[in-house]
Every structure is written in structure tokens, then in C-alpha cells.
């Protein structure tokens, strides 16, 4: 049973890594923000598998809700597209 949990954890966290990498490479900042909240959702699943439901409750609300809203506010004061390499 524990092996199964560890395998699910590995899959979920690697998906999180993939999405965080995509978020870093994205030039449209709003799309990057959406990718980063998908990554947060995968990490929240990881926390749940690690038997930390207290962290999940706070992490989901902060990482998907409050953080996204504050960064959208910051993007609205600058430009949406990252220019140049």
C-alpha cells in the first residue's frame, strides 16, 4: 500500500515540476500564472498523499486564490507579455 502511495506521489509531483517548468518558459504572464496554479494544485495533491490535510487547506486557498489574484493585480500595472530573450 505504501509503495502505491509513493508512486502516486512521484507522478503527481513530477506533473507539478512539468507545469512549473512550463510556467517559467511562458512569455504570456497570465498564461504563466494559470500554469503555476495548476502546479500548485498538483503539489496540494502531493501534500494530501503525504497525510498533511492541514497544509492542503491553507495551501490551496493561498496558492490558487490569494497569490493568483495579487499577481494578476501586479500584472495589470505592467505589461502582459514578457519581451525578448
Amino acid at each position: 500500500m505504501q509503495e502505491l502511495h509513493l508512486i502516486i506521489l512521484a507522478i503527481v509531483v513530477s506533473f507539478g515540476f512539468v507545469f512549473s517548468y512550463l510556467a517559467m518558459k511562458e512569455h504570456d504572464l497570465l498564461k504563466a500564472l494559470a500554469l503555476s496554479s495548476v502546479q500548485s494544485t498538483f503539489f496540494a495533491l502531493g501534500f494530501y498523499i503525504l497525510a498533511a490535510p492541514d497544509i492542503v487547506l491553507a495551501y490551496l486557498a493561498i496558492a490558487v486564490g490569494a497569490y493568483t489574484a495579487l499577481v494578476i493585480l501586479a500584472i495589470s500595472k505592467t505589461e502582459r507579455y514578457e519581451v525578448g530573450e
Binding site: 490535510p53 492541514d54 487547506l57 491553507a58 486557498a61 486564490g65 490569494a66 489574484a69
Partner: peptide, 21 residues
């Protein structure tokens, strides 16, 4: 049960944000 003041409060902040948006 799992949870607490900070977790509940941050969930509530999301509700306020939705109303804002």
C-alpha cells in the same frame, strides 16, 4: 478535524476576492 483558524480565514479571503472580481 484537520483545519484551523488560518486555513479557514484564507478560504474566506478567497470568497472576498471572488466578490471583488
Amino acid at each position: 478535524t484537520p483545519g484551523g483558524g488560518f486555513q479557514g480565514g484564507s478560504a474566506m479571503a478567497v470568497a472576498a476576492l471572488l466578490l471583488f472580481a
